[in-house]
Computed example of a mutant assay.
Amino acid sequence: MKNVTKRALAIVFLFVVMCNLSFFVSAASYPSTSATYNIYNLVRNSSASGGCSKMIPQGITFAGDYLLISAYCGDDVPHNSVIYVFKESDKSYYGTIKLPGTEHVGGIAYDCDRSGNVWVSNGNSVGCFKYSKLADCKGKVLSVSYNRVANLSYTASTMCYDAVNNYLWIAQFSENDSSKSFARCYAVNDKTTSTPTLPYQFEISVPLKTQGISVRGNRMMISSSYGRNNDSKLYSYTWNQTSKTKTLKSTTILPPLSEGVVMGSTYAYVVYESVAPKYYDTCSYPVKYFASYVISKFGI
């Protein structure tokens, strides 16, 4: 019986070693970051999260003087979704915007007008509030309401604003149906008023499991992920605004559970939902931070 037990333990030990070896090989293949900004404690801080200690970060965008990360509640009894506001200059935490509902706020975008709006995914719609509200949340949690809600015929899973071509992109996530995996493009009219409109422009296909999109002039990045133990992918494209076509330049493997991505002039930032309490202990390679990557390394 002792020999049987020893053999069983040896098999278990070998299995664990093999799993760990596979894990380390995978982790070693991930690209190095240029900088990391730890948000592990922030998403667990109920005083900075509208009373919730189980926030799940999703979207990320630049907004003038700020960098924004949207998050929704992972608790059984949901709290309102929030936007964490960071100073753009050094990525230090500035304050929190408390949104009017509990929706899965997968996307966030700024329409690049100081008198304009921050746009947020709101299920089968997008809502917006004035950019000026961001300054008012310094050192506190500030509740806002949407000054405009635009209804959609699909789920606003993620979105971005292309300041070069002045379009709001809204993409829908689909795990396995390519016909439902698309991004639609809208102009933003009357953005300085209380009732901006979103006239439809065109649609393109995007990869399955799209979690984040960023378009900046002739460059595009799409974050794709699904599953706590599956590597994410970051697709980098050149984008032709005239022909409305994207050309794939590279596919980069990232840690599991990547969500939003946003490009600056030099760096791209990616947020991972594995930092959330719901996923951190069960994800094969949890990431405590949102990460900065040099864009030129991705071939665009």
Rank of each mutant, 00 (worst) to 15 (best):
M1H: 13
L9G: 07
V12Q: 08
L14M: 12
V16A: 14
C19A: 11
C19Y: 10
S22Y: 11
F23E: 09
S29P: 00
P31T: 07
S32C: 05
A35K: 08
T36V: 11
T36D: 12
Y37S: 01
N41P: 00
R44V: 08
S47H: 01
A48T: 07
G50V: 00
G51Y: 03
M55D: 00
Q58L: 06
G59M: 11
G59R: 10
Y66V: 04
A71F: 04
Y72L: 01
D75Y: 08
D76T: 13
V77H: 09
N80S: 09
S81P: 01
I83C: 04
I83S: 01
V85A: 02
V85F: 02
D90L: 06
D90R: 01
K91Y: 14
S92M: 10
Y93E: 06
Y93M: 10
Y93W: 13
G95L: 03
T96I: 02
T96K: 10
T96F: 04
I97Q: 09
L99F: 05
T102I: 12
E103A: 13
V105M: 01
V105C: 11
G106M: 07
G107L: 01
G107Y: 01
I108T: 05
Y110W: 15
R114L: 13
N122M: 10
G123C: 08
G123F: 04
N124E: 12
S125W: 07
V126D: 01
Y131C: 09
S132T: 13
S132R: 11
S132A: 14
K133P: 03
K133D: 15
L134G: 10
K138M: 08
G139V: 04
L142C: 08
S145M: 00
N147E: 15
N147D: 15
L152V: 03
L152S: 03
T155C: 02
T158Y: 08
C160I: 03
V164K: 12
V164W: 00
N165S: 11
L168D: 03
L168S: 04
W169E: 07
W169L: 09
A171H: 02
S174L: 06
S174V: 05
E175A: 14
N176I: 06
N176S: 15
D177R: 05
S178M: 12
K180N: 12
C185N: 03
C185T: 11
A187S: 15
D190L: 12
T195Y: 10
P196F: 02
Q201G: 02
F202Y: 15
E203P: 02
T210E: 03
Q211T: 07
G212W: 04
V215W: 01
V215S: 10
G217C: 02
N218K: 09
N218Y: 03
S223A: 15
Y226G: 00
N230A: 14
N230S: 13
K233E: 14
S236H: 04
Y237P: 10
T238P: 09
N240C: 12
N240V: 10
N240Q: 09
Q241G: 11
T242G: 10
S243D: 12
K244E: 11
K244F: 07
T247D: 12
K249N: 14
L254S: 06
L257W: 00
E259L: 04
V261R: 05
S265L: 06
T266S: 13
A268M: 13
A268H: 09
Y269V: 06
V271Y: 11
E273Y: 06
S274R: 11
Y279C: 04
D281Y: 08
T282I: 10
C283W: 04
Y285P: 00
P286Q: 05
V287E: 06
S292I: 02
Y293L: 03
K297R: 14
F298P: 03
